[in-house]
């Protein structure tokens, strides 16, 4: 294995971050923790985009998509936090277990 950093390194990094994010989302009961996990997942996707853009033929497509994802993540964080606030006001907690009251 040569010392140069290649596509595989980025993909592995991305996979690690995705797994961390997924783990966070699945195990956290704190709503804000879940939102953080989601951010991790989105950023792992961004790394993939940029890596493929850099090593693949397409020059700007991946970067533009990455910018879109960042924007999306920001919007998602706003709405997510608003939901969390609403939950807090109703249940005086941000434990997602509380929302089991909403079951059908």
């Amino acid at each position: 294995m040569s010392g140069a950093v290649g596509l595989d390194h980025y993909l592995v990094l991305s996979l690690i971050i995705f797994t961390l994010g997924m783990f966070t989302v699945l195990t956290r009961r704190n709503a804000i923790g879940i939102l953080m996990g989601v951010e991790l997942i989105l950023n792992s996707a961004n790394i993939n985009y940029l890596a493929f853009a850099y090593y693949g033929g397409a020059r700007y497509d991946g970067q533009i998509f990455a910018i879109f994802v960042i924007m999306l993540a920001a919007a998602e964080a706003v709405i997510g936090l608003a939901v969390v606030l609403a939950i807090y006001q109703n249940f005086r907690t941000i434990d997602v277990g509380a929302t089991e009251n909403l079951s059908g």
Binding site: T27, T99, S103, G104
Partner: peptide, 9 residues
Amino acid sequence: RKLQTGSIN
């Protein structure tokens, strides 16, 4: 509707 448990996890 029983599938709708309300548990996000």
